[in-house]
């Protein structure tokens, strides 16, 4: 057969895809069924990643309440505390978080009055009294409960250094030595991500 004839033949008979055999199809179905079963049996817990950036009394509550509640739902929870969020984990400062009326139109004090010296202390006392009267959990209780339930409370290393804190000043059980990359990794793996 000459080269010309060979070329003509291959052009005349276009390449056909060979149909898979019954055995091959059956094997493929088994393989897919196994994969599906593995997905359905996946009992790894869902994950939630929260970033806490605020250090006022009112803003310390949402991340801790959501974290402890998610843990009660069986979530693996991490809370990355950065900038003023670090105050929540600071053993001494956490029991003394302040509430400010300035810039908060929901508070019944005009900004001009709220800016007077001593006003933050007063609004904080009022809020603390309400928390007590209402039997709302304190920040310390929520931190201890969260840690008990396996929530990972992380303190951003860069902010620890920036604010001049020592690692020993945080609650026992707080994770230190973590940075933004750890937070991003947690967020990437999480089913729910929240910035507070």
């Amino acid at each position: 057969m000459s080269a010309d004839e060979s070329a003509a033949e291959s052009a005349a008979a276009p390449e056909t895809v060979e149909a898979p055999s019954r055995e091959e199809l059956a094997a493929r179905i088994d393989e897919l069924a196994d994969q599906l079963a593995a997905t359905e049996d996946d009992d790894t817990p869902p994950k939630m990643a929260i970033v806490a950036t605020k250090g006022t009394l009112d803003m310390a509550y949402p991340p801790l309440i959501l974290a402890s509640t998610a843990a009660a739902f069986g979530f693996d929870v991490t809370v990355f505390h950065t900038f003023w969020g670090l105050e929540i984990l600071h053993e001494e400062n956490a029991s003394d978080l302040k509430l400010s009326s300035v810039g908060n139109p929901s508070m019944p004090v005009p900004n001009l009055v709220a800016a007077l010296p001593g006003m933050d202390r007063m609004t904080t006392k009022l809020m603390e009294r309400r928390i007590e009267e209402n039997d709302t959990a304190t920040i310390e209780e929520l931190i201890e409960t969260s840690l008990d339930m396996g929530v990972e409370l992380q303190a951003c290393q860069m902010t620890i250094d920036l604010l001049g804190y020592d690692e020993s000043e945080f609650y026992d059980g707080v994770t230190v030595g973590v940075g933004a990359a750890t937070a991003v990794q947690d967020m990437a793996e999480a089913d729910v991500q929240l910035l507070v």
């Binding site: 402890s68 009660a72 039997d135 339930m149």
Partner: peptide, 15 residues
């Protein structure tokens, strides 16, 4: 009794 959100759920899970 007397405890508020999130404690009833959190303590139920612990129990």
């Amino acid at each position: 009794k007397g405890e508020n959100c999130p404690m009833p759920v959190v303590k139920s899970k612990q129990a």
